[in-house]
């Protein structure tokens, strides 16, 4: 319909429309597409010309390999935890009065964006060496101490924003589990457990996969929170890239580009797989 409309304007409308869209397209080109292209090209460049040398160097270095490994582990763990915690909470939120669930979701919108120093420092106050909860647990005699500046500390802080993001992603999907569906299953004699295993989870599977991939990508790209909590001590990809950029000794500028390209490729794989998987489901 829109095309017919443009034609009826004799092309003048669409020419004006292109003019109206041009500034945004230019900005996207200059500050989104070109930077990506430059990173991809520079990663293939070494001092001796075009080569895959940077990639070979990354693969040969246990340090860089471990950074990728740790990033993937951290992201897998927090994405799984995020979805696993968010799903039952989302189910509960559908049952409580609307005002209550709305308030929690509004806060989740903010909470999902609490990254970097604000959330890292809040966790240090609560779970740091002299943190409120640390002392509480030590006084109770349950633990001898906590180390928030560690991998498990990172997992805890990540999960804080991951589960709230998961909540936001899963709430709309739960609309598909209607009360009728539950009633019908109950009439047929299905227990709650059977309902979720046979009906609920299969219906939600695409949404759960999408949410998982989104959370995985979110965690893989997280820089500020890890930087704020453990600084350079976390051997994860984003921190390594940042260090190569900000480091005083910039020995190999193309290494950062190659690392960044690998990160993008690593994220593209699950996203493409997800698309293929979900499209096959829809077609089949």
């Amino acid at each position: 319909m829109a095309r017919r409309l443009a034609a009826s304007e004799g092309g003048r409308g669409s020419r004006l429309a292109i003019l109206a869209a041009a500034p945004l397209l230019l900005m996207l080109l200059l500050f989104e597409i070109l930077p990506l292209i430059v990173v991809g090209l520079d990663g293939l460049h070494t001092d001796s010309g075009w080569s895959l040398g940077n990639y070979a160097a990354i693969l040969a270095s246990p340090f860089q390999r471990n950074a990728f490994l740790l990033s993937v582990e951290l992201s897998l763990a927090t994405a799984v935890l995020g979805v696993v915690i968010a799903l039952p909470v989302a189910v509960v939120l559908r049952r409580v009065p609307k005002g209550v669930s709305r308030a929690l979701l509004v806060y989740a919108t903010i909470g999902a964006n609490f990254t970097g120093f604000p959330i890292a420092f809040a966790f240090i106050i609560m779970f740091g060496l002299a943190g409120f909860f640390t002392l509480l647990l030590v006084h109770a005699g349950w633990i001898h101490g906590l180390n928030i500046y560690s991998l498990s500390g990172l997992v805890a802080v990540y999960v804080y924003f991951q589960f709230q993001l998961g909540l936001l992603l899963l709430m709309p999907a739960l609309e598909a589990i209607t009360p009728d569906l539950r009633d019908a299953a109950r009439v047929m004699g299905a227990s709650d457990r059977v309902f979720w295993l046979r009906i609920g989870l299969p219906i939600l599977a695409p949404a759960l996969i999408s949410a998982f991939v989104f959370l995985f990508a979110n965690a893989m790209g997280t820089y500020a929170t890890a930087y704020a909590l453990v600084g350079g001590n976390a051997n994860i990809v984003t921190i390594r890239i940042g260090e190569l950029l900000a480091g005083d000794v910039f020995s190999d500028p193309h290494l950062a580009d190659a690392l960044a390209s690998l990160l993008v490729i690593g994220l593209a794989i699950p996203i493409v797989l997800e698309q293929i998987l979900l499209h096959r489901r829809r077609d089949g």
């Binding site: 930077p35 990506l36 430059v38 990508a217 990160l263 994220l267």
Partner: peptide, 15 residues
């Protein structure tokens, strides 16, 4: 949303 901010930051720094 698919490309981490740090990757774009690298590109912006190059450009």
């Amino acid at each position: 949303y698919a490309v981490p901010g740090i990757v774009l930051a690298v590109g912006l720094l190059r450009l």
